[in-house]
Design a protein around this nucleic acid. Structure first.
Ligand SMILES: [Mn+2]
Ligand SMILES: [Mn+2]
Ligand SMILES: [Zn+2]
Ligand SMILES: [Zn+2]
Lengths: 142, 142
DNA sequence: GTCGCAAATGCAAGTCGTTGCAGTTGCAGC
DNA sequence: GCTGCAACTGCAACGACTTGCATTTGCGAC
């Protein structure tokens, strides 16, 4: 239940009202593995908190993404996937051939952010990228 | 009409059947400025080729994106934007404050692709990224 | 504690995009 | 040119997501 309290604090700090719906939705995002789609979230909440409407889920996720509390990323499935923004900033490498998803430390793109700031004066927010390509093992198989 | 012929050739080389619908849809993508959404495309085709069904437009754009004939990018509007893959590979910087969109030469991310290949053996396809952040003039105003 | 109001929610209708299927068509082989 | 078949299309039903509006509620001010 530490999660509930902490989520409430984060919401309050972001200038949002702390409603039970929001706390349940965002705690579910935090607890349910890494990435989760809106429809899967709705499905899981249906059993634990059946009174929460789907539109509330969509609205909560959208505003949380705007406020930078969660990442919203297209991992190639067609549906956006959401992830709580924790301490470990990262990106993902996604293989177009086998579908394998791996994580990539934020530091790989630090150089790009620095370069953009120096050359264009642009303060880039390289939050949580999905980088598509072909993984090592799929290349050797070909 | 050079566009029609060239598009037909590209389709054939990609192993697709050359149908009038596909040629019209992809030529419209090529001609209509830089980025275009599916719904705007459907609207424009309604006047010139009213017989083309919306589902055909969506399917054509999806398969063209899979084949690497067009880029499909979320520029922040909520709708995917499509762009014909021409000679000039580029990315975009999008300001979250003023909405300004600028282009960025592909070379800025070349280093990342090299790094990913050397360190992870991952052959990244850094096609057409939308990089969000705050532009120079919006930073100075703040 | 209670009041008042802006913000958030639930509901229902609406829009956007996807999918299954039956009919059509491009095109390779003859 | 014809033929045959897999690929493609249009249609209609469907699922995903959004939006307008009346009601409820969190929470700051008293
Ligand atoms: Mn992630
Ligand atoms: Mn572009
Ligand atoms: Zn792979
Ligand atoms: Zn700006």
């Amino acid at each position: 239940m530490a999660c509930e309290n902490e989520t409430a604090i984060v919401l309050r700090e972001a200038g949002q009202k702390v409603t039970p719906q929001r706390v349940h939705i965002l705690c579910e995002v935090r607890h349910s593995g890494v990435h989760i789609t809106a429809s899967r979230l709705i499905e899981e909440l249906r059993t634990s908190h059946p009174f929460i409407d789907a539109s509330t889920v969509y609205r909560t996720l959208a505003s949380a993404a705007d406020l930078g509390l969660v990442y919203e990323t297209d991992m190639g499935s067609g549906e956006s996937e959401f992830e709580w923004v924790g301490k470990d900033r990262h990106h993902h490498l996604i293989c177009r051939t086998c579908g394998d998803v791996t994580s990539l430390d934020n530091s790989y793109l630090d150089g790009v952010a620095t370069l953009l700031y120096e050359e264009a004066g642009f303060q880039a927010d390289l939050g949580h990228f999905a980088i598509f390509g072909v993984c090592k093992s799929c290349q050797t198989k070909a």
